[in-house]
């Protein structure tokens, strides 16, 4: 059985279920308790779990994320909420320099089972400093996992897996998706980290994306279908580890691939996927892998510019036409 709920409620259910299941799990972050979360993701959780497990922190990302990492090393299962991943930049040392390396540096004695979650990407006229897509920067670091769900059901199933995972998991949500409603199973379920999903089957071109741009891809696929180009849309769901097998399987069938990534183009997950597809599918490609990214500029504030900056459906359609020699 399913019911239709918002993405933010799916996140809430995942955290609440895991906190009921495992008393080591707790949530901390700015305004997560008294205010029910800046984006109302933790609505009602303070009442249910009390201030010891739903903790309001000062505006000090470096401090509270460092504290959470220490807690994780000593056996707890913290969930850190960043109001925006843009604010994580001041916590780069704990989250990039400590958490992902702990298992390695301690010779396997203790890891860091922490989940760090928050809004990633352009929220809509938030300006360039508050519109970060951190996947390009952070996915470069070995030792962590990076999850970026596009749909409520995935958000819930993947967050539950992330909380149970023994490695640090960076969980990238989107402010633009928090109110997105979709069917989510009633019963408990988990979605494994590292498994992509074919969102829409197709025969002529593989579209690979993750997070919010998956929706742009589905929109583009709809338009391209009217032109007779059948796109297979793959929702990567996880960036690290990357499910390259699902992508390769699709590209071997379609012979064309366009990667859609809301990061900037240079040294991005999209670039990495293109490189891996080129290597794995060399003899199956009829053209170089196409890529659609956010424009290589700081995120514009003006709404028209911001829309044009994003890897929107129109730009995806153009890339697919060019890549499949239908331009």
């Amino acid at each position: 059985m399913t019911r239709t709920i918002e993405y933010r409620d799916a996140l809430n259910e995942a955290m609440s279920e895991e906190m009921r299941r495992d008393e080591r799990v707790f949530l901390l972050g700015e305004e997560v308790a008294e205010y029910d979360g800046a984006y109302k993701v933790s609505r009602g959780m303070l009442q249910e779990f009390g201030p010891k497990r739903v903790v309001d922190t000062p505006i000090s990302e470096s401090g509270f994320s460092g504290m959470a990492i220490g807690a994780a090393m000593l056996g707890l299962r913290p969930i850190v909420e960043f109001m925006s991943w843009s604010f994580s930049l001041v916590a780069a040392d704990p989250i990039l320099n400590n958490a992902p390396k702990m298992l390695y540096m301690s010779g396997g004695q203790f890891g860091c089972p922490i989940v760090i979650r928050g809004n990633d990407g352009a929220g809509g006229q938030l300006g360039s400093t508050h519109s970060w897509c951190v996947e390009g920067l952070y996915a470069n670091v070995p030792g962590m996992k990076m999850v970026i769900p596009a749909f409520p059901a995935d958000a819930k199933g993947l967050l539950k897996s992330a909380i149970r995972d023994d490695d640090p998991v960076f969980f990238l949500e989107s402010e633009r998706l928090l109110a997105y409603k979709d069917e989510v199973p009633e019963e408990e379920y988990l979605i494994p980290i590292g498994k992509a999903l074919v969102r829409r089957p197709g025969t002529d071109c593989t579209l690979v994306s993750f997070g919010r741009p998956v929706h742009f891809c589905l929109e583009a696929a709809e338009e391209l279908a009217r032109e007779g180009i059948s796109c297979e849309v793959i929702d990567g769901r996880t960036i690290r580890p990357l499910d390259i097998d699902t992508i390769v399987q699709s590209v071997k069938k379609t012979n064309y691939c366009v990667v859609v990534d809301q990061s900037w183009p240079f040294a991005s997950p999209g670039a990495e996927i293109a490189a891996q597809v080129h290597a794995a599918c060399f003899d199956d490609l009829d053209n170089a892998v196409g890529r659609v990214h956010s424009a290589d500029v700081p995120t514009p504030y003006a709404s028209e510019l911001e829309q044009e900056y994003l890897p929107n459906a129109r730009r995806i359609c153009e890339a697919v036409r060019a890549t499949t020699y239908n331009a």
């Binding site: 003899d283 009829d286 053209n287």
Partner: peptide, 11 residues
């Protein structure tokens, strides 16, 4: 004259 051929076309 170098023949330009896409990999899958060649295959």
């Amino acid at each position: 004259e170098k023949l330009k051929v896409s990999p899958v076309a060649r295959r």
